[in-house]
Design a protein around this nucleic acid. Structure first.
Length: 804
RNA sequence: GCAGUUGUGGCGGAAUUGGCAUACGCGCAUGAUUCAGGUUCAUGUCCGGGUUCCCGGGUAGGGGUUCAAGUCCCCUCAACUGCACCA
């Protein structure tokens, strides 16, 4: 009898062996093909590891371990995305320096991850808050700055009227401050911005070069939101000024019956003296400032707005004078901050016109504009539009755009939803922006030799009450000299957002100790691009897009050798609580991975998380499901008692084995871990049914299972003296001929209903199958007296007899 | 409102190009095993009706295409996730 399966002992044992043998430490090795597998590095939060973390980590650990067994030189690294708000808030609340908080959190996270036995190359561990790391984050920022991709602009921030601090969107819950419940308003501040919009087109077109799951590509395209339209100038009646609008429907210009500008539009103040209801407009603007863009633009809500009295616009196509309104659904940050309203053919405009009783003029026939906006652009024909009448929408767009261009009152214009990246934070726990403000020279970059610009280590990292960064209070640090002219200058006191450090971290893993460059050329040439990157869907539009943007800038500057950082991107689903809801403290449904490891073992946790369901869908936790996986590993363990010395394979089991190798090999590649594990379970069940397994079969099973349950398979491998280690062994290959069953069962249907089954050889001819089918009594009885209309045979699967 | 995703037994979920719906796991039931069991092994388990066996129904709901639909098409409903009404 075999000894008991004791994961507590064997898991510690093998983790130590792997560490001692430097099993997963890699270097540049040109004798082998490289493989770079990457998972998103975690934010080391105070709560410790969540059961959601091991799902993607185990998945790519499987890929990494399989690739090593297939002869690749595999880089699978891990690090810490450690700057950020929760740490800073925790530090403020508990009077512990964020640096200490971060150190403690990382220590805990690392222990937890190591207890799961991942094949990370820990010698390449990185930490975004390490000056040797953020030195290069700052360096890249300076490259962006030198290239003119960083600029300052007035941007609204969330401002808590009570705490007197700027808040992240996340800290604003239902329009009030998350901490104190006071009202949050939007105030304008000068912010550093990065011109990601300059790369909008490339970020769309280069998606063709990479292998991302469709969902990700679609999300990125929708986020960038390219639209083709026109900009049109409307003159202000009796003024020199023109009001420029952007529209995707220039064809409906004759139907514009009013204009709407954003409450923040500069014309409101510019024509203050002529506007008769200025006070009313300002009150409306102040109310709008309290809402987020999302709230402002919610289509479901009631439309609000105020008509500007004393200012009108002239429609350039027909000279008609039309009113100008302000409304919060028009945002200053998109297009020109002004729209022409065509209520007949736009839903929002239609709602607005109905509410305020504004005229609706149909210019595209095909709908019933008295009942709803007609927005169809495929079938409509232009009417009430003079020279456009009778045209289809697409043609009308072309004609009017050409006409506008010729008259000099409009141009064709491509717009993107994508906005520039607000890059500054009025916070302590982030990378300092390495710039100084000199009265003489303006914004001046620090010379490279002065990097890293260290985050000053002081006691007071509390937010200031005037909305400036905590760094602003450190006058010794702030006051400096200009590197250009040597005169007095002040440092930039805002810090970078958390996204900065994660926008290039995959490059640092390649060469983490390099102090001459973010990574050496030789290492970059060898390792880039990342072959497989897995991460959460929630990072699709921010992190993933930001890092592609930075990489493209570095590529254009010649610092990296690939236009795209990631060759392949996949995404995992969330792990929900046992009640099917998102895990959270307040719901009381949080599962701690440490508890699962100590009760069942890391191999069980890994197996369970892979077996829980389709990798890309969310799945609910089940403790009973966990014990099922533990039971499976026990059964694998106890196969030792069924070992037979009998020569040769059971033919039946051999077929099953080759089918299993094939299934597992292919399923691991397509993230179908649940069915791969099901196939191994089936194989084990078959061994129990036959009450036998040979050494060769057992060996193969251990190889297949090793990427999932790495510790128990190493232990069994050693116990059975298969020689060496599983991590050094070769991945098994299947023989296609041996996966084919000797006989197959096909189903006989009559008129699509199953009536009988027939066992045949797979290569049996159609003619013979039909003949045999008709010989089955159950079939011949039913067919008696009927006329056969047709017979469809699908090889090795089904015969359908259609009879009347 | 927009975008994306999902809907299959008591539960988690399987099911290349349309080709035996419910693999695998859990739970439950019965039997065996064990001093004991939150052990192990075996067998059964979509629903309904007559009960060797057969008949009928069945993949959120409705319709369609087809010899054949969980899978393709149209409509409806529900849930989850993200969001910046993008003019």
């Amino acid at each position: 009898m075999s000894v008991l399966y004791n994961p507590k002992v064997i898991e510690k044992k093998w983790q130590k062996v792997w560490e001692d043998e430097k099993a997963f430490t890699v270097g540049t090795d040109t004798s082998k093909p490289k493989y770079y597998a990457l998972v998103e590095f975690p934010y080391p939060s105070g709560q410790g590891l969540h059961v959601g973390h091991p799902r993607p980590y185990t998945a790519l650990d499987i890929v990494a371990r399989k690739r090593r067994m297939q002869g690749y030189n595999v880089l699978y690294p891990m690090g810490w995305d450690a700057f950020g708000l929760p740490t800073e808030n925790y530090a403020i609340k508990n009077h512990i320096h964020p640096k200490i908080v971060t150190e403690n959190n990382i220590k805990r996270f690392k222990e937890q991850l190591q207890s799961l036995g991942y094949s990370f190359d820990w010698s390449r561990e990185i930490n975004t808050t390490d000056p040797n790391y953020y030195r290069w984050t700052q360096w890249i920022f300076l490259k962006l700055f030198e290239k003119g991709l960083a600029y300052k602009a007035e941007m609204p921030i969330n401002w808590c009227t009570s705490c007197k601090v700027g808040l992240a969107n996340e800290e604003v819950v239902g329009g009030v401050c998350e901490r104190c419940g006071s009202e949050v308003v939007r105030v304008v501040r000068k912010q550093w911005m990065l011109k990601i919009t300059e790369y909008a087109e490339k970020l769309i077109t280069d998606l063709d070069q990479v292998d991302y799951i469709d969902r990700v590509k679609i999300s990125q395209k929708n986020w960038i939101g390219k639209s083709e339209g026109a900009e049109v100038d409307f003159t202000l009646a009796g003024k020199e000024d023109t009001l420029r609008v952007y529209t995707t429907r220039p064809d409906t210009l004759f139907g514009a019956t009013y204009m709407v500008i954003s409450p923040e539009h500069p014309f409101v103040d510019k024509y203050k003296d002529e506007i008769k209801n200025y006070e009313e407009l300002i009150e409306y603007r102040n109310n709008a400032a309290k809402k987020s863009d999302f709230e402002r633009t919610e289509l479901a809500k009631d439309k609000t707005g105020v008509c500007i009295k004393g200012l009108t616009a002239v429609n350039p196509v027909n000279g008609k004078e039309i009113p100008i309104w302000i409304s919060d659904y028009v945002l200053m940050t998109y297009g020109t901050g002004a729209i022409m309203a065509v209520p007949a053919h736009d839903e929002r405009d239609w709602d607005f016109a109905k509410k305020f009783d504004l005229p609706i003029i149909e210019v595209v026939a095909g709908g019933r504009v008295d009942e709803a906006a007609f927005t169809n652009t495929e079938t409509g024909i232009l009417v009430n539009s003079e020279f456009l009448n009778g045209l289809e929408v697409a043609d009308a767009k072309k004609k009017i755009t050409a006409w506008l261009t010729e008259k000099g009152i409009g141009t064709k214009k491509t717009n993107y939803k994508l906005r520039d990246w607000v890059f500054s934070r009025q916070r302590y726990w982030g990378e300092p922006i390495p710039l100084v403000h000199c009265e003489k020279c303006g914004q001046v970059a620090l010379p490279e030799s002065e990097l890293p610009l260290l985050l000053p280590e002081v006691e007071s990292y509390m937010p200031t009450d005037n909305g400036e960064s905590p760094l602003a209070a450190m006058t010794d640090w702030v006051n400096t000299t200009c590197p250009k002219c040597g005169g007095p200058a002040v440092r930039e006191t805002d810090t970078m957002p958390q996204w900065a450090g994660s926008s290039w971290y995959f490059l640092r893993y390649i060469d983490p100790m390099n102090d001459l460059a973010f990574a050496g050329k030789e290492a970059l040439d060898y390792w880039m691009p990342v072959d497989w990157y897995n991460g959460g869907m929630e990072h699709t539009t921010l992190h993933l897009l930001y890092s592609r943007f930075w990489h493209k800038v570095l590529y254009d500057l010649g610092y990296v050798n690939t236009p795209e950082p990631y060759q392949k991107r996949t995404s995992h689903g969330m792990i929900l609580g046992e009640n099917g809801e998102k895990m959270s403290k307040s719901r009381g449904n949080v599962i701690n991975p440490d508890d699962v490891v100590s009760e069942f073992g890391a191999d069980t946790l890994r197996t369970y998380e892979m077996f829980i369901g389709a990798f890309d869908l969310s799945a609910a936790w089940s403790m009973e499901g966990v014990s099922g996986c533990r039971r499976f590993l026990e059964r694998v363990w106890k196969l030792q008692d069924l070992l037979t010395d009998e020569e040769g394979f059971s033919k039946e089991l051999e077929t099953k084995l080759h089918q299993t190798i094939k299934k597992v090999s292919l399923d691991f590649e397509s993230l179908k871990f649940n069915t791969a594990i099901a196939a191994m379970m089936s194989f084990v069940n078959e061994c129990y049914r036959l009450e036998r397994i040979t050494r060769g079969e057992y060996k193969t099973l251990l190889l297949l299972l090793n990427p999932v349950a790495s510790h128990v398979t190493e232990e069994l491998w050693e116990t059975l003296s298969f020689g060496g280690r599983v991590y050094q062994a070769s991945w098994p290959l299947w023989d296609e001929a041996k996966t084919v069953e000797a006989t197959v069962e096909i189903v006989i249907q009559i008129n699509g209903k199953i009536k009988a089954a027939l066992v045949i050889e797979p290569e049996e001819t159609e003619e013979n199958v039909i003949k045999k089918a008709h010989e089955i009594p159950a079939i011949s009885t039913i067919l008696d007296g009927k006329t056969i209309v047709k017979q469809i045979y699908v090889k090795g699967r089904i015969l359908n007899i259609v009879a009347k």
